[in-house]
């Protein structure tokens, strides 16, 4: 099926389900029924459905269909669950425990939305970088580039063109090659430092002779390589961290939902 058709269909089904839930809530309220029980169970079932994705992921050998199809279902069911969640909670949320539960759900839902967006955008950014490196390899490559840069800088000092390049390396480039990037960069990878370092290197041209300039160009390309590695690393770790948060909170969520359900049924006044 065409991707666009599938998306339209899934969205329609999701919105239809949400509308159905809203109608159900209205219908129940009109009959003095307990609407929160209805939305609660809907939420519980759909949340349980969300857990199916991790179940599918953990069992490779079963013939349960493709993970991508499951992810689609997961996404739309998550949208549905989030909207039902809004119907379920009273506003403002009262009670410390309920507040924790609601905020946990909200965090999971929001991280899920962020993930679905980043799953689309991160690959595009990564593909634009050129050479693709896996995140496990990057530290090694980073170390290699740093070592090369260091050797090159030492070498340039021996050419007898003065210590200009070596000094510059010492002051500006060494910290760049040897250290990790700041947390802000890891959160929002950008090209600010790369551009600044390249400009500074470019400015050195007038003080260097041929060999020095060759080293300078080589250093510039190393800066680019290092920055590309950092960029890829930041993008990938960012995605993985967000996914870790999303996944880690689900079990807390499951526990709290369990307690919530038990409490509700233990304390329900309107037991029929």
């Amino acid at each position: 099926m065409d991707i666009r058709t599938r998306r339209t269909l899934s969205l329609t089904i999701t919105l239809f389900a949400v509308g159905l839930a809203a109608l159900g809530v209205q219908w129940t309220r009109d009959r003095l029924g307990d609407a929160s029980t209805l939305t609660g169970w809907t939420l519980l079932v759909s949340t349980a459905g969300l857990f199916l994705l991790s179940a599918r992921k953990s069992s490779v050998n079963s013939d349960w269909g493709r993970v991508s199809a499951w992810l689609q279902v997961h996404t739309y069911m998550g949208t549905f669950a989030s909207l039902v969640f809004l119907m379920h909670i009273g506003w403002p949320v009262r009670g410390l425990f309920e507040l924790c539960l609601a905020s946990c759900f909200a965090t999971v839902a929001l991280s899920g939305i962020a993930l679905s967006i980043m799953n689309r955008r991160t690959p595009l950014k990564l593909a634009a970088v050129g050479v693709d490196r896996s995140v496990e390899q990057i530290p090694a490559f980073r170390a290699a580039v740093a070592r090369d840069a260091h050797a090159l800088a030492l070498q340039s000092a021996e050419f007898g063109e003065g210590a200009t390049l070596a000094e510059h390396y010492q002051q500006r480039l060494l910290p760049f090659f040897q250290s990790q990037r700041s947390w802000l960069y890891r959160l929002i990878p950008n090209g600010i430092q790369r551009r600044r370092l390249l400009r500074e290197l470019n400015d050195l041209e007038r003080y260097l002779a041929d060999q020095g300039n060759a080293s300078r160009v080589a250093l510039a390309s190393m800066v680019v390589t290092k920055d590309d590695l950092d960029y890829q690393y930041a993008l990938q770790t960012r995605l993985r961290t967000l996914y870790a948060l999303h996944a880690a909170l689900t079990w807390s969520l499951a526990l709290m939902i369990g307690v919530h359900v038990v409490l509700v049924y233990r304390f329900q006044g309107a037991l029929q």
Binding site: K57, N61, D63, G65, R66, V67, S68, L71, N119
Partner: peptide, 15 residues
């Protein structure tokens, strides 16, 4: 195994 190869069916993004 039945169905698609594991790598293809495990890809969450149809990549």
């Amino acid at each position: 195994r039945n169905g698609q190869p594991a790598c293809q069916s495990a890809c969450p993004h149809d990549a």
